[in-house]
Design a protein around this nucleic acid. Structure first.
Length: 473
RNA sequence: GGCGGGGUAGCCAAGUGGUAAGGCCGGGCUCUGCAAAAGCCCCAUGCGCCGGUUCGAUUCCGGCCCCCGCCUCCA
């Protein structure tokens, strides 16, 4: 009936925000695990906190796929909201051109971080008809109404289950004083906008709809896109912890009110990244981007390691000290992969069993990295003392490759740095000098290489070259 | 105020009712022309504070002190 993990790998389990349980994951259609993740708002570069969420979602997907469960992954790009409109106007660009620019930047960063591209990734503006259709259904069934300002609102009162995800019934449903001023447009302060009537400050950024010119509300884009590409019910919906309320709560309300069917079966929320113990914010000046990490001389892959070094349900404290640790650890993995050699057709997962178990256990990446370190030592000892057969070695290499694939580490670099011919020539010359035991010449050539920005490492039978300000290849 | 998450070695960070994973740093060793890298070993009688339950608590319960997040559009 349902896909079973191959090779005796444990079936992944994941904590569900809605039920507070940690069920084993199975595709509800018995074949493909369909999930939706809220994407970035493209009004500037994504920061490393955004990427924590996307990296966790990426590992989640990779674990499923290596476990033999095919996935279908959909992500939206928020390209119409107050921030994109305001910023594009400030820069004197059309909304479309402005968002295109930042979308491409996001996708370049994502690729550098080895994030698998979603099967569908699209902007909200490209799905306007779907959103309008969804709002139309809600209007027809009386779940929505047009307010005094011309905007269309979802009527919270028409969806009794409202608040289940964020446990609103255990909270105080507040009516903030600031919203008393807006009572003319909404029946209830908790009602949220599905369609926002055009305002002068939106400029040319409006579209026609049965309710007049305007633009879609934020929540409706996710519901419309998720249901269009995954069906009215699907397996999982994810995002940052801060989206639980109100964003995901509102998505559930409007989706289930429209369809009468359960929306997402499971909810996956990633805790925030902190910087030096505080929330990242522009005002604190601690909001870092991938660009900043690269400027400090570290790689995207090293950042990826840092983001995986904490459990996704706990806030993770980012410090710059973590990057060198990442470099060291990844270097050890790289060496072990070289020692193991080419993967064979049939993996032997036994030596890495602890890693698979930890990842399947609510995506416990820090525990999995700990297990990986232990396994690394054991495999090193095994290679040294047991003189394993080529087949045995290739089988472990295949399992090791699976583990690397799940973490997204040491994947083929899409844009390897070219070594200049002059540098290669110097290195060759030095290698010859060294073979001739001409130490003076060898030292002089090493100095020249370092001046050129390259480090030469001597091995037994060969050497390696790496840029001084980059991690070792 | 309401809801929730935390306080574990210099830093980061798992975990458990039975005596503390892992990484980095640090120390030692092997290897090594030099330089590195790599490999091996060591490194918290202690898990915010005070009580309680228990044969036994860092892990359960109560109280207290800090820190952090959410509470209408922030991943």
């Amino acid at each position: 009936m349902s896909a079973q993990p191959p090779g005796g790998l444990p079936r992944p389990r994941l904590y569900d925000t809605l039920t507070r349980e940690t069920p084993a994951l199975e595709p509800m259609d018995g074949r493909t695990f369909r999930f939706y993740c809220c994407g970035p708002t493209v009004y500037g570069p994504a920061h490393i906190g955004n990427f924590r969420t996307f990296v966790m979602q990426d590992v989640f997907r990779r674990v499923l796929e290596v476990s033999g469960i095919p996935t279908r992954h959909v992500r939206n790009i928020t390209d119409v909201d107050d921030k994109t409109i305001r910023q594009s106007q400030t820069e004197g660009k059309t909304l479309d051109a402005f968002c295109q620019e930042w979308t491409e930047k996001f996708q370049r960063d994502a690729a550098a971080l080895h994030l698998l591209p979603p099967h569908v990734e699209a902007g909200a503006v490209s799905h306007l008809p779907d959103q309008i259709a969804l709002i139309g259904r809600l209007m027809a069934d009386g779940h929505a109404y047009q307010g005094g300002d011309g905007s269309v609102y979802f009527r919270i009162g028409s969806f009794p289950a409202y608040g289940a995800l964020s446990r609103l019934q255990e909270r105080t449903l507040t009516t903030h004083s600031t919203q008393a001023d807006d009572e003319y447009d909404r029946d209830s302060a908790a009602d949220f906008a599905l369609w926002k009537a055009h305002r002068p400050e939106d400029g040319a950024n409006f579209w026609p709809s049965p309710w007049g010119n305007g633009r879609p509300g934020w929540h409706v884009e996710c519901s419309a896109m998720a249901m269009k590409h995954l069906g009215e019910s699907f397996d999982l919906h994810g995002g940052g912890m801060d989206l639980i309320f109100p964003h995901h709560e509102n998505e559930i309300a409007q989706s289930e009110a429209a369809t009468g069917k359960p929306f997402a079966r499971h909810w996956f929320h990633v805790a925030h990244l902190m910087v030096e113990g505080r929330k990242m914010s522009k005002s604190l000046g601690n909001l870092h981007t991938l660009e900043d990490v690269l400027d400090h001389g570290f790689s995207a892959e090293e950042l990826r390691y840092v983001l995986l070094a904490g459990h996704y349900r706990q806030p993770l404290n980012f410090t710059w000290d973590a990057l060198p640790a990442a470099r060291k650890f990844l270097g050890r993995l790289r060496i072990l992969r070289e020692r193991l050699g080419a993967p064979g057709p049939t993996p032997d997962h036994q030596p890495l069993h602890g890693v698979f178990t930890a990842l399947a256990d609510d995506l416990n990446t820090p525990a999995a990295l700990g297990q990986l370190s232990i396994a690394t030592k054991e495999i090193n000892a095994w290679l040294e003392s047991d003189a394993p057969s080529p087949d045995a070695r290739a089988a472990v290499a295949a399992s090791f490759a699976d583990v690397l694939r799940m973490f997204g580490f040491l994947l083929p670099d899409p844009s390897p740095l070219e070594t200049p011919a002059a540098v290669t020539a110097l290195a060759e010359e030095r290698w010859q000098a060294r073979q001739n035991r001409d130490w003076a010449a060898a030292d002089r050539l090493r100095a020249q290489l370092e001046e050129a920005g390259w480090r030469m490492r001597d091995g037994r039978d060969s050497y390696t070259l790496a840029p001084l300000d980059n991690p070792a290849p």
